[in-house]
Amino acid sequence: MSLLKFDPWWLLRGAVLGLLAFAIFGPIANLLLWAVAERWYFPHMLPLEYGFSFWARVFAPRGNAMVSLLNSVMIAVLTVGMALLVAIPAGYALARCKLPLRGLILIAFLIPQAFPNLPVYVNIAQLFYQVGLNGTVPGVVIVHVTHGLVYAVWIATAAFSAVDRELEEAARSIGASGLRAFADITLPLAAPGLMASAVFVFLESLDEFTGTYFVGAPDVSTLPLLLYTAGAGGNYQVASITALLLLIPSIGFMLVVERFLKADVLSRVGR
């Protein structure tokens, strides 16, 4: 056994990796345990009883989890649609045309993220209340779109920049109108990048809490709102199950992003 030499660095590396793994997987493990715990209280290290009765409660026809899930997905889909409707023309213009203050325009989409969320949403809620958008799905969608537009526009701009202008010109020169060249050449080639931006907006919308809370609650309930209510009420089982539900699309979409977002697009984000 003389092959096994003791290396202190290996030990240190192992320890750091272990800590990292714990930081990542610890909370998830806790979540998983809570999701299947029937009874679990201090000072016990592990749940006392396992079972799926809370799952049944969450997914019961009268439970509001399903309604919240449907709401969340519907709002996210509408948000993606609206964001792309703005981001495709805006991104194309920012990528292709020599716009004055191009940098400033790109920064402008960051503004909704730059200010503290809470005061902004309180004011939006007040404004929406006056025009009757408070407590409605369109109201929530608008809030999510302003929030997600920075991803949509920035990534769309990068995606369009990555499409060589000569590819478009080649189509123009053999008889394609500007619109036709865009539809046949530019859009399909930018599609992976646009797909990635859609995924980002979708995830942002699915996760969004503050804006939904001020503009939507209590009439419009989404999964994060449900999670908050359950967590605040000490119902960790329902909160954990909701969190797991939220995790599924997140992980799924991260895989999609990883597949679609190529390095040449990523390198152009924000330029």
């Binding site: 010109e169 080649a170 189509a171 123009r172 020169s173 053999i174």
Partner: peptide, 20 residues
């Protein structure tokens, strides 16, 4: 006239073939 209404065809130095 726009490029598509000129009855010409341009061959690019980079070829500009559509990769998709």
């Amino acid at each position: 006239a726009p490029p598509d209404r000129r009855g010409m065809a341009l061959v690019f130095q980079s070829y500009a073939l559509w990769p998709h």
